[in-house]
């Protein structure tokens, strides 16, 4: 039975595959809504900048505790939050645009990270940091990922409306004395947290992929915020599930495989999505009366 052997058996037979699948599901649930808001705020590349910014923290965590995903995550979180806070403050206090401050701080952070790794790390471990170890996720790491997802979803449930208004019309929030700055920081914290969760599984280089690619792809299908988030979650989980299977059967590294599946979904959406895709430009539909 191809269906059973190829699609289900790896997860039924191997505990590490089950763990990986749960990690992917948790990651998808958190990254979907966060990525959707990032895309809508035109901050797609800021996710990328932050994913690089976590490197020195992860490296310091590695120096202190060795290849412990939890300590590397805590270090990465601190570094990412520092970069996010500094960039956020600078761009709120000055006329500088946020992307410029982010570029400045993440480059500084990345340079420090590379320096630390070149001084203390060994090659094999660096590969783990950069490309992730989803197939070697232990209970502690899984617990951390799931906790981050829970926190993310709870935060959205509580201040979701504020996050949306802050993204959509920050000027209005300012004149009604809304908590714009706090919401902004909460959102950046969520981005960093989910990147840290992602790098457990996918590595610092790939973590942002599961956040951005499904969210950008979803824009080609639906037009409503809730639907965008749900579709992003769905795309992310499909990428995780398929990526795990392909990497299991073909003996490929799981992180890049998962992201490549997400990339394939994105490209498919660009061509065949319902909204604004290339095919809607080619096929002309009759226009309506009004």
């Amino acid at each position: 039975m191809f269906f059973y052997e190829f699609l289900l058996d790896p997860f039924l037979s191997f505990e590490f595959m089950r763990r990986s699948l749960i990690a992917c599901l948790a990651l998808s649930l958190g990254c979907g809504p966060v990525g959707t808001l990032l895309v809508l705020r035109r901050m797609s590349l800021i996710g990328d900048a932050l994913s690089h910014a976590v490197l020195p923290g992860a490296a310091i965590g590695f120096m202190i505790a060795g290849l412990s995903l939890v300590s590397m995550s805590i270090g990465g979180f601190i570094a990412g939050i520092l970069v996010a806070l500094l960039s956020g403050f600078i761009s709120r206090l000055t006329q500088q645009r946020e992307d410029a401050s982010f570029a400045a701080f993440y480059l500084i952070s990345l340079a420090i990270g590379v320096l630390i790794i070149s001084m203390y790390g060994s090659n094999v471990d660096i590969m783990h940091v950069l490309f992730g170890t989803i197939l070697a996720i232990d209970n502690e790491s899984l617990f951390l990922v799931v906790s981050i997802t829970t926190l993310t979803l709870l935060t959205f449930a509580i201040v979701g409306r504020g996050l949306v208004v802050e993204s959509f019309d920050p000027g209005f929030l300012k004149v009604v004395n809304g908590p714009g700055a706090i919401l902004h920081l909460i959102f950046l914290t969520l981005v960093v947290l989910n990147l840290v969760a992602g790098f457990q599984a996918l590595g610092t280089l790939m973590a942002v992929g599961l956040m951005m690619l499904p969210a950008v792809a979803a824009r080609f299908w639906v037009q409503n915020l809730l639907k965008l988030s749900i579709l992003s979650i769905f795309f992310a989980f499909i990428s995780g599930y398929s990526g795990l299977l392909i990497s299991f059967h073909s003996n490929l590294p799981s992180g890049p495989t998962i992201i490549l599946v997400a990339g394939f979904i994105y490209l498919f959406s660009v061509f065949f999505g319902f909204k604004d895709s290339l095919i809607t430009k080619i096929i002309s539909r009759p226009h309506l009366e009004n």
């Binding site: 809508l40 705020r41 035109r42 949306v164 993204s167 959509f168 019309d169 920050p170 000027g171 209005f172 037009q223 409503n224 915020l225 965008l228």
Partner: peptide, 13 residues
Amino acid sequence: PQQADIDRSFPIS
């Protein structure tokens, strides 16, 4: 404001 910093492409009704 004269030019609200509203993102007109935001998916909101």
